[in-house]
């Protein structure tokens, strides 16, 4: 059984090898630290923060500039912007990540099938994707939420569906470049079937563009939810959420820029940290870039 033990050690060492390569990338580590801090903030904000401050109106204190009482000032309804930003991270980050995962998985499978099987399958799947692409993504999301009814899950579904075509296209083209390699043919020669070939050989080698697409996707989702909220189909008004903070503050940004600077910075920071993590992950997963 010593060989099995060795195999287990090796598996772990491969993971630790990836971690080792990731850790050496300073920017990626910075991204990871920022992102973990944001997750931590979203998870534990209720311990030190006060949700009431984030949702109750306080008209006498509206539109205050940053002060000791309100570190980032207050918005047009007198709500504390710091609290709104911190509580908003919960919805924005979770919806952003979940939408990304959902559209990544579905889009990748569709794109992979289209790219790998080609011909009729490709045509059928990609024409369906074209139909989705032809409808503006906001309109598509609005109609999905309107049809299924309001709610967190439907919101997630709506934003994910509108992102799927983008993933499918990126994955399909990434797969077309890998498909012609001889090791795919070698796998077929020993009787491997399509699904396993895609998972074992094609997707790992087509990862680069997919990761980039995934990280960019989160920003688009967060902003997408805000436009849904704007027409009243997203998150209902008092609930704090970065995208709707942005669109609410938009009208007053000339006189009170902090209304949009704070949520804008939060979105930018989240996207940037995910981008850095994505870049680092892509490099760490590629054994050719070792040393």
């Amino acid at each position: 059984m010593s060989t099995a033990g060795k195999a287990k050690r090796r598996k772990r060492s491969q993971l630790s090898l990836i971690w080792f390569r990731f850790r050496k990338n300073k920017l990626a580590m910075l991204g990871l630290i920022i992102f973990l801090m944001m997750i931590f903030m979203a998870a534990y904000v209720s311990i030190f923060g006060d949700y009431e401050k984030a949702i109750t109106m306080d008209m006498p204190n509206k539109l205050q500039t940053p002060s000791a009482a309100h570190l980032f000032g207050t918005d047009q309804f007198g709500r504390d912007i710091l609290m709104r930003m911190m509580f908003g991270a919960r919805i924005s980050l979770s919806v952003g990540l979940l939408t990304m995962v959902l559209s990544l998985v579905v889009g990748s499978l569709i794109g992979a099938a289209a790219g790998y099987y080609g011909g009729k399958v490709d045509n059928l799947l990609m024409r369906i994707m074209d139909v989705f692409l032809a409808i503006p993504s906001t309109l598509l999301a609005i109609s999905i939420v309107a049809a299924l009814g309001q709610g967190m899950f439907n919101l997630l579904l709506a934003t994910a569906v509108s992102q799927i075509p983008a993933f499918a296209r990126v994955v399909r083209s990434a797969i077309l470049t890998v498909k012609g390699q001889d090791y795919i043919e070698a796998a077929r020669a020993c009787g491997m079937r399509g699904g396993r070939i895609i998972l074992r050989h094609i997707l790992p080698n087509a990862m680069g563009p997919i990761i980039v697409q995934a990280t960019l996707n989160i920003a688009r989702t967060i902003l997408g939810i805000s436009s849904l909220s704007f027409v009243g189909l997203g998150i209902s008004p008092p609930t704090p959420e970065w995208g709707s903070m942005l669109s609410e503050g938009k009208t007053m940004m000339r006189y009170y820029p902090h209304l949009i600077l704070i949520p804008g910075a939060a979105i930018a920071l989240a996207v940037m940290s995910l981008n850095l993590i994505g870049d680092g992950l892509r490099d760490a997963l590629d054994p050719r870039l070792k040393n």
Partner: peptide
């Protein structure tokens, strides 16, 4: 295969 580079999965 002919090409010992592209015939082995680099990962």
């Amino acid at each position: 295969f002919q090409d010992p580079f592209s015939s082995l999965n680099p990962r």
